[in-house]
């Protein structure tokens, strides 16, 4: 997992509440157990005019020009802005995978669904909870200002706007530690690699029949 310390990026405003995991990535794409390649199918039903299926060449499908992510001014966005209860629905880890693989590094919203929140942080997607009034203002600013970018400082737990405002957000210290150091659960375990190796050497010594 990549470290998340300070990032700065273009904001895509998605003026919707209760964006569910089925909308984030429809069920037909869950059959795959690969953890890659979900980017083109993020928000598939909103993004394309036709019905998508796995195995299609998604670059040739007709785009819904009205969908926010299809507008030229939001190309290359890395911060998604949305309303309450983002990520509600299933426990599918495909939802954060799709957001990350599309290119998003952070989502800002007033609230997130629990499982989605945990799944996202485990995968290095930073979810930032800001007061609903602030999110509302940011949505309007982002819509009104072409090239609207924000800076996110995880160490300081702050989001800064082009207008020079800064908003503090809360995050669990353990989650923060993992993100700052790029530690996913495997990364954390591997932080004890010397102990693991020492155990394995001793284990080999004690129960050699398991290794012969």
């Amino acid at each position: 997992m990549e470290k998340f310390v300070r990032r700065e990026g273009l904001v895509a405003p998605m003026d919707r509440a209760n964006v569910d995991t089925d909308a984030i990535i429809p069920k037909q794409y869950l059959k795959s157990i690969k953890r890659t390649g979900y980017g083109p199918n993020l928000f598939d039903e909103w993004r394309y005019l036709d019905h998508g299926e796995p195995g299609m060449d998604h670059s040739k499908r007709p785009l819904n020009k009205d969908f926010v992510l299809n507008q030229p001014r939001y190309q290359g966005a890395t911060v998604l802005l949305a309303r309450e209860n983002f990520g509600c629905g299933s426990s599918r880890e495909h939802a954060p995978w799709a957001l990350l693989q599309y290119g998003f590094q952070a989502v800002i919203a007033p609230s997130f669904a629990d499982i989605f929140y945990n799944n996202s942080l485990k995968n290095g997607l930073l979810l930032i909870r800001l007061d609903a009034k602030i999110v509302d203002r940011l949505l309007r600013e982002a819509q009104a200002t072409p090239g609207y970018r924000v800076a996110i400082d995880l160490e300081q737990q702050a989001v800064s706007t082009p207008g020079g405002e800064s908003f503090r957000f809360e995050i669990d210290p353990f989650n923060k530690h993992c993100l700052l150091n790029g530690l996913d659960e495997i990364g954390l375990t591997l932080g004890h690699a010397d102990k693991i190796r020492a155990f394995e050497a001793a284990h080999r010594e004690r129960q050699p029949w398991l290794f012969s």
Binding site: I33, K122, E185, I186, T189, H192, I196
Partner: peptide
């Protein structure tokens, strides 16, 4: 599934 990955990567 995630735990399987964890085991394969770390044996832990």
């Amino acid at each position: 599934t995630s735990e399987v990955e964890h085991v394969l990567a770390t044996q832990c």
